[in-house]
């Protein structure tokens, strides 16, 4: 039976809309958490918070979004090497981000804002929830990388790669809100 629903172009838009609804739903978690930040602590921010380190990891995530976009354009062009190269850079940058947050940022924050304080609670919960999304995004991108290496994805059909990249951008968008609200806002 051939119907509109089976048309690959039509199906692609269906999947894109589905992914967007998922993103809309996921955003609600962060909206709830970021609102809680204002409800609990207003715009209070501890003096010791390292804003420059925050700027550093923001930059890393931003560059990774840039390379993720390049990877998507490359596979649409049919340039597999360029796709894999850009994807690899994205994954490495994502890993660096994750390691810096968990291994540098968190131990530092434990001293001046432990989770038993109001700000520490928010800081760890929000960056933790974001880090979890980074982690899932990374797993997805790594799977896509190896699939690409095995020869999957073509200029006509690369929904898998596209969806992973869009999800990765979503993780970046979340950080675009998290960084000012946690690191920059202040009395």
């Amino acid at each position: 039976m051939s119907t509109l629903a089976h048309d690959s172009k039509y199906q692609l838009v269906t999947r894109r809309l589905g992914l967007w609804l998922f993103i809309l739903s996921e955003s609600m978690i962060f909206i709830a958490l970021l609102f809680t930040r204002f409800l609990m602590q207003g715009v209070y921010r501890p003096e010791e918070l390292n804003q420059t380190l925050g700027l550093g990891i923001t930059t890393i995530l931003l560059i990774s979004s840039f390379t993720a976009n390049r990877a998507e354009v490359r596979i649409a062009q049919g340039d597999r090497t360029g796709f894999l190269r850009n994807l690899a850079i994205t994954i490495i940058l994502g890993l660096v981000f994750l390691v810096v947050v968990v291994a540098v940022e968190w131990p530092e924050a434990l001293h001046f804002a432990p989770p038993s304080t109001g700000y520490g609670t928010l800081f760890f919960a929000i960056t933790g929830m974001h880090a979890f999304h980074v982690l899932t995004g990374l797993i997805i991108l790594i799977i896509i990388f190896f699939q690409g290496k095995r020869g999957q994805y073509s200029p006509e059909d690369h929904w898998g790669a596209e969806s992973g990249v869009v999800y990765w951008h979503f993780v970046d968008v979340v950080w675009i809100f998290v960084y000012p609200i946690l690191y920059l806002f202040g009395p």
Binding site: R16, V43, V166, H169, V173, I176, P180, I181, L184, F185
Partner: peptide, 21 residues
């Protein structure tokens, strides 16, 4: 704070529109 709020919304809009299509 209002300035930063504007900027972050602008940044998010850029990513949503041009990177996430």
């Amino acid at each position: 704070i209002p300035l930063m709020a504007l900027i972050m919304i602008g940044k998010a809009a850029l990513v949503v529109q041009y990177y996430m299509h």
